[in-house]
């Protein structure tokens, strides 16, 4: 029996009022849902809130779950909607959509340095994560959700489109613009950390 088959059996039992079956579904899927929240919002408490809201909404809407997508995809959709609501309330400055569109247009006039050989030790990895998280947080919610689902969660384009109820073409465009923006931010980071190293020596 595959995971999805196992899930389907538990979903049927939970639909018939078996609370233990629903708890088993939570046990199987909570790691994925918690990490999705963590990756979208970079905060444990927010991730826990999203997880709780997701399972309460899933429990209430279970009779409406038709099984056209897998239970996990359905949960991802609910969790992503809660994450999007939280993201929209965030106070931090977001990069404008215009600016994201301009990056690919302006690439031709921008210096492109290859920093992929730069050594990244343990300490630098933490610093890099901070820089990267800050950049991911500055993406507008509709871009950040695509980037997290596709590039961090590793979900295929079609599934991301299904979760967000947008076209595959929209997923591809948002993914490309997000990647180019984050690449640019990492290029700035490596340029600055290179300068710092020069000052240290």
């Amino acid at each position: 029996m595959t995971n999805t088959d196992g899930e389907a059996v538990l979903v049927e039992r939970a639909k018939n009022g078996d609370m233990k079956a629903f708890e088993d579904l939570i046990k199987i899927t909570s790691g994925r849902i918690y990490n999705l929240g963590l990756r979208m919002l970079h905060n444990k408490e927010d991730a826990a809130d999203i997880m709780q809201e997701t399972y309460i909404a899933a429990y209430e809407n279970l009779p409406k779950f038709k099984g056209t997508s897998s239970f996990s995809t359905w949960l991802y959709r609910i969790a992503t909607n809660f994450a999007l609501m939280k993201m929209r309330k965030e106070k931090g400055r977001k990069v404008s959509e215009e600016r994201l569109k301009d990056i690919s247009k302006n690439l031709y006039n921008t210096a492109i340095n290859d920093w992929t050989d730069s050594p990244v030790d343990h300490l630098k990895k933490q610093e890099l994560k901070t820089a990267l998280d800050k950049a991911i947080e500055s993406l507008p919610p509709k871009y950040r959700s695509v980037f997290v689902l596709h590039d961090i969660e590793g979900l295929p384009i079609a599934e991301v489109a299904d979760i967000l109820s947008i076209s595959k073409a929209a997923v591809k465009t948002r993914s490309h613009r997000s990647r180019l923006y984050l690449r640019e931010k990492l290029s700035e980071y490596f340029k600055e950390s290179g300068v710092k190293n020069l000052i240290r020596t």
């Binding site: 990895k125 890099l128 961090i152 990647r179 690449r183």
Partner: peptide, 16 residues
């Protein structure tokens, strides 16, 4: 550009 774009994705996964 290809190398740095690929590495951006790798770093994003590794740090999350």
């Amino acid at each position: 550009l290809l190398h740095t774009l690929e590495k951006t994705i790798v770093f994003s996964r590794e740090t999350h």
